[in-house]
Design a protein around this nucleic acid. Structure first.
Lengths: 345, 345
DNA sequence: CTCGCGAATGTAATCGATTACATTTCTTTG
DNA sequence: CAAAGAAATGTAATCGATTACATTCGCGAG
């Protein structure tokens, strides 16, 4: 029970104290410019005097909004995502929206559940960080009589048509490959993300294009499967260990992969970067502290988080339900540390 | 705008279709046992036929609840916390509560803000993971005419009287010290957390008691300040490097500290564990993949998250606002990996 | 067959804010 | 100074579910 024991002041009380109607109080609070300065002052004084706060449930019921946006995160445990949530949370708080978080790693929400978030009045908008949500579930959101505002962030679903905010994945890979090539590497491999994920394709595509641009052939044996996790990196590392001839450098689709990869190599006396250079993607906080410190492509998490939240909040405010899906690309930058160097010979 | 274009069925519609009153529909949904089997069936059929879903805002307004609980997290970017949120999120979802998340790293909420979460109708209960919230702000929550249900998790504030769920910190430290002593270490140091945090004291206390129990003197020069972060570990490492005679083992108050510490040592050719053993606390996912793999005290994050959520939800359900603050202690276990070994000589 | 009582159901007030529309007050200007 | 129009304020309907209280139904006992 949220209620205070005796009296939680309501708008009526404020109105009485200020000697105006409830309508005026409400207007003073929501659009101060339409009331006269005099009444505004007295209403605000009354608000302070009574300790009044609007009751959200009542407001939400009347306005048919919820004042919350929901982030669908593929895996809360992944530090990359949790660091992003920080930025989103800040932006939301500033706009008086609440940020709800749901982890989709356990159960992938279907069309019903997704629609349910809106129908149940849980959220006014969705920020989807999980590009693997099924297409029909997503399209269902748009085919509603009134579209439910949702945007993609970081990941996306290419078969659908939502606004999205993402990093410049291709350019990141290009910088990564160029950095290695500049140092003299020619046998460059790649550990990609899960093939069900667009990011994997975006990054692998960027990798291949960059290689081609530099006239470096891609050895398909050096392109390994993964899924962005530490464990995937470990498996890739074990595969490398089994090879007779290894690449001199590996570009990984995530920092986590790189960490896992390096861990296995180190444990087996393959020295990074002397024997093999490893490059990550994300620049999570750990990258700087790992041993060796990880050369990686930095995604601007804060900017991603803020941009996405801002974009969604703006659409909510303007009630712009238009179809034209925009893509906001956030630049990445390369952070050179010690996990890369010139090849041995 | 959450509304569907034409018609979002409401309880009236269901009542009409089922040929009963709205009261009966509501009862069927909230307490099925008080309606007759026959009406129950027809109501449920009508619900399905119309695709009805309760409107939360309306329900919340009427029942004076919000259906959400709020987690106050000191730092979302810290993987330890984000991994915990996963467990909480699951438990909440099962009980049809929403989980709201607020990061307190930017601004420490004061009494007003804390109270505001309830007064504004944002949450029915609080799970506080930040033990550094000011005492008066917290006490204010309890001194309300009707107490606002809040519990501590992981951290707590010893000056206040809330239920809390936490790991067995002292026992963890005892295992850590014993493990090192068993290997022959006598010069054992400690990097503690921030002195503003209870966990720091709990763990430092556990450390000292364990040392005493084994008749090992504590060299105060080997007790270093920190704050749970990678950066703190780095600074502690630099301090170690400056010492003429170093301890042969360090017990850190968190994994992050341990990582930072090891990183600096490694970069300066101090080998872990050969030259110095390092032990962490938490067992975040990275611990296994760091190089060298970190020996650490594992906190059962999932259990912590579930227990806390369950405790709060039960208190909400039973409306048990009693004062008796309980402490739920979750056991820890030691995970031995490769960052510890017998001392050099 | 009727009375009484518990079970099932219905009626309508209620939660607290917002806002369309109505009314009053203030400016402005011819 | 009056009239017209703009600005400020007030009145009351409304959002959609819950629930106290009233009513009706069903069944067994007398």
């Amino acid at each position: 029970m949220t209620s205070m024991n005796k009296k939680m002041p309501k708008i009526q009380d404020v109105a009485r104290v200020a000697g105006v109607s409830t309508a005026t109080v409400s207007r003073t609070l929501s659009s101060p410019d339409v009331v006269s300065a005099k009444t505004r002052d007295s209403v605000l004084a009354a608000v302070k005097a009574t300790g009044y706060r609007v009751n959200r449930a009542a407001r939400n019921l009347r306005t048919q909004r919820t004042g919350a946006i929901l982030a669908l995160v593929p895996n809360l445990g992944n530090p990359f995502f949790s660091e992003i949530l920080q930025g989103m949370e800040r932006t939301c708080k500033q706009s008086d929206y609440n940020l709800l978080i749901a982890d989709t790693s356990e159960t992938t929400p279907d069309a019903d559940q997704l629609e349910g978030y809106f129908r149940d009045g849980q959220a006014d908008g969705l920020i989807i960080l999980d590009g693997s949500l099924p297409r029909d579930a997503l399209e269902n959101l748009q085919n509603q009589p009134s579209t439910y505002p949702s945007i993609f962030m970081c990941e996306w679903n290419p078969e659908t048509n939502f606004h999205s905010v993402r990093s410049d994945n291709a350019h990141g890979m290009k910088m990564a490959v160029k950095h290695l090539a500049d140092q003299g590497h020619t046998d460059i491999g790649h550990v990609r993300g899960p093939m069900t994920n667009v990011l994997s394709h975006a990054r692998e595509g960027g990798f291949r294009k960059a290689m081609e641009a530099l006239n470096l052939p891609v050895n398909e044996n050096y392109v390994l499967d993964g899924d962005f996790t530490l464990e995937a990196g470990r498996m890739a590392g074990q595969e490398l260990l089994r090879m007779d001839k290894r690449p001199t450098a590996m570009v990984c689709a995530s920092d986590q992969i790189a960490f896992g990869l390096i861990a296995v190599l180190s444990q087996n006396n393959v020295i990074v970067p002397d024997d093999i250079s490893v490059l990550g993607f994300d620049d999570v906080e750990m990258a700087e502290f790992f041993y060796p410190p990880l050369t990686t492509i930095r995604q601007d998490r804060d900017c991603l988080g803020r941009s996405a939240a801002k974009l969604l909040l703006e659409r909510l405010k303007s009630r712009d339900m238009s179809e034209g899906a925009t893509v906001t690309t956030i630049p990445v930058e390369m952070v050179v540390r010690s996990s890369t160097s010139a090849p041995a010979n």
